[in-house]
Nucleic acid binder design. Structure first.
Lengths: 200, 200
DNA sequence: GTCTATATAAGGATAGAC
DNA sequence: GTCTATCCTTATATAGAC
């Protein structure tokens, strides 16, 4: 246990991440964040001026820590199928560590007064993936399909169990440990699916 | 334009559905619901006593109108692959008419104080699908895989584009009309995917 | 920088008239 | 059944002392 002394700003940010991600923007209370950070509300405003500003910092923080890895994978100089393999493995392992980020992000981009936040997302992922797909299609290494539809499917397959985790746990009568195990097994299962879909 | 005179209770319920589904529980205001229903707040409480009770009615209403159709498809006396075909087509067309239900439901079941609502979900879908899968597996009509993992994948593929619609629209630089067209095309694309996965 | 105290506003819920 | 007026609690935000 390394005990690092955090600055007040870092303590606040850490607490804010936890509360906002768990309770959503509307469900979050500045008081809860202050309590968790071990300070009082006034100090929150001293550091971040408003709930909106604090939320934006939290969103930036999480999005920047979560998505860039996915973007990098697609930029590598390997075949499309290999990229997809890395994507599945990287994404699911990242989700196991951050299971609530997807719902947090989806809520934010679907919120009327948070539309500006969409541009903070890595919007080039789709373009990059499409380019990579067509390169391999030319070389006849891959089946012909619609790459956008395929990428939406891939993301959906990876992220859905985490979004619907409470329903899945109940449906399977499973524990958290079993869920984690299922998600690790899921990596190979999904790799199998995409091979069946992509191999010509 | 058929102009049906709604009872006050129905007007309230209709307004409540719109507001709760759009803004979520925490983001919704009783005032907004009253305004939309064309009445005042006091009358809301006269009919439904509290925000919690009104919300529960809305959830029941939407869940009961949304999911039973999916359950029925899986109960038909047809092959597993045919069921999946119907599932894809039925689910996506239902989502085109109710694009915001999934996020609404996922938020509810992921909310700490709404855990009881999980039991309102059609939890037998997974069991039914698994049974149907193994029947066809025995007849060697289908590839061997994990049916739970497959069902999670199927649902994820269907629902993800709707959850992430704002991001998809921006990524593809698409309009609402284009999105709808894509989702209709998606029905056949997904049928193709599941055939590649399931056919032995 | 950090605190206590408080201003100000919003939101859920109720009382009571009609 | 429906309304106006109001209560009560909670939330964000700020003032001012230390």
């Amino acid at each position: 246990m390394t005990k690092i002394e955090l600055s007040t700003e870092e303590k606040i940010l850490q607490a804010a991440v936890e509360v906002f991600v768990r309770d959503g923007y509307d469900g979050s209370r500045m008081q809860d964040i202050a309590d968790l950070a071990g300070i009082n509300k006034a100090l929150l405003h001293y550091y971040f001026r408003s709930k909106d500003k604090l939320f934006e910092r939290v969103f930036d923080e999480k999005v920047q820590s979560f998505f860039p890895q996915m973007s990098e994978i697609l930029a590598q100089e390997i075949s499309f199928i290999e990229k997809i393999d890395f994507f599945i493995e990287g994404y699911i392992k990242l989700l196991l560590k951050n299971p609530f980020i997807p719902l947090f992000v989806l809520n934010t981009v679907n919120k009327k007064d948070k539309q500006d936040f969409i541009q903070k997302m890595p919007l080039d992922i789709m373009r990059k993936a499409t380019e990579s797909y067509y390169q391999d299609l030319q070389k006849l290494q891959i089946r012909e399909l619609n790459p956008m539809q395929f990428m939406m499917s891939l993301m959906g397959m990876c992220v859905f169990p985490f979004l619907a985790k409470p329903i899945m746990l109940r449906s399977f009568n499973a524990t958290n440990e079993m869920f984690e195990y299922m998600m690790l097994a899921r990596i190979d299962e999904l790799k199998k699916y995409v091979r069946l879909i992509l191999n010509p």
